[in-house]
């Protein structure tokens, strides 16, 4: 009996030690510097509030932490869409003026690999900017740092919340530099293929309601057209 108790205690300690190693593993900390910050091209930014109640519409399975908004919106409860959410929001430009309507679909990814510090979400943006055009953004997001730095500390907190300043890029692919892929559909964006990075700036998080004060930024690099075709005089 004593050996069985020792074995079970050892198992519990072993599992806890392994989870602690995963949680504190410095190798899984990602560089928060955006690859676009060193780009020579123009970068346009779209900002939005990542708080569900600030969106035009936010919906999920209705049983998740973040409550759908408005209250009577259709929920995604069917098995095939249960691990997905849909967001429609106003995207603002650098001067905080409304610039576009953005629709984002996000789904938990089967590429999630906790051993490698990857909490992956596959997402796409469908953006329409009046007077400019439309964009489609394909993105792989990694929420591991967000999970480790905000969500788990919020659960450990006696008040079930987190407050602070956290800034980080959540885009991790599919571009080679950890950027998302952008395709322009119409207007001045028609036909362009470029990169983007989405980042979060969190100030408050509640275990009960999810993000309470959190902004997001979608930065899109706009390549210079015909720059390579001009000849030196």
């Amino acid at each position: 009996m004593r050996y069985l108790v020792a074995l079970l205690l050892g198992l519990a300690v072993g599992v806890a030690a392994f989870l602690a190693l995963l949680y504190f593993n410095p190798m899984t900390t990602r560089n928060h510097l955006s690859p676009l910050s060193v780009s020579d091209n123009q970068v346009i930014t779209f900002n939005y509030s990542a708080v569900a109640t600030d969106a035009i519409v936010y919906t999920n399975d209705g049983e998740s932490q973040v409550i759908p908004h408005p209250a009577k919106v259709l929920q995604l409860w069917e098995p095939t869409v249960r691990r997905s959410d849909a967001l429609a929001t106003v995207l603002r430009d650098g001067r905080n003026a409304p610039a576009a309507i953005g629709i984002k679909f996000s789904s938990d990814s089967e590429r999630t690999n906790v051993l490698n510090g990857e909490a992956i979400v596959d997402s796409v943006w469908h953006v329409y900017a009046p007077g400019q055009g439309t964009l489609f953004v394909e993105q792989r997001e990694n929420y591991w740092d967000f999970l480790r730095d905000i969500m788990i500390p919020a659960r450990w907190s006696s008040g079930d919340n987190w407050r602070g300043n956290w800034n980080g890029s959540i885009t991790s692919g599919p571009g080679a530099l950890g950027t998302s892929r952008v395709f322009g559909g119409s207007g001045i964006f028609a036909g362009i293929e470029t990169d983007a990075v989405e980042s979060l700036s969190a100030k408050a998080y509640s275990v009960e309601f999810g993000p309470v004060a959190m902004d997001a930024e979608l930065a899109i690099e706009i390549p210079r057209r015909d720059a390579s075709l001009s000849q030196d005089p």
Partner: peptide, 23 residues
């Protein structure tokens, strides 16, 4: 036995995270 349990726990947790899909 306790040490063996720790090693078994580490190996079991790693195997579970590797083989059981999270999503």
């Amino acid at each position: 036995t306790f040490i063996a349990g720790i090693l078994l726990g580490i190996a079991g947790a790693a195997a579970a995270l590797y083989y059981i899909p999270v999503v």
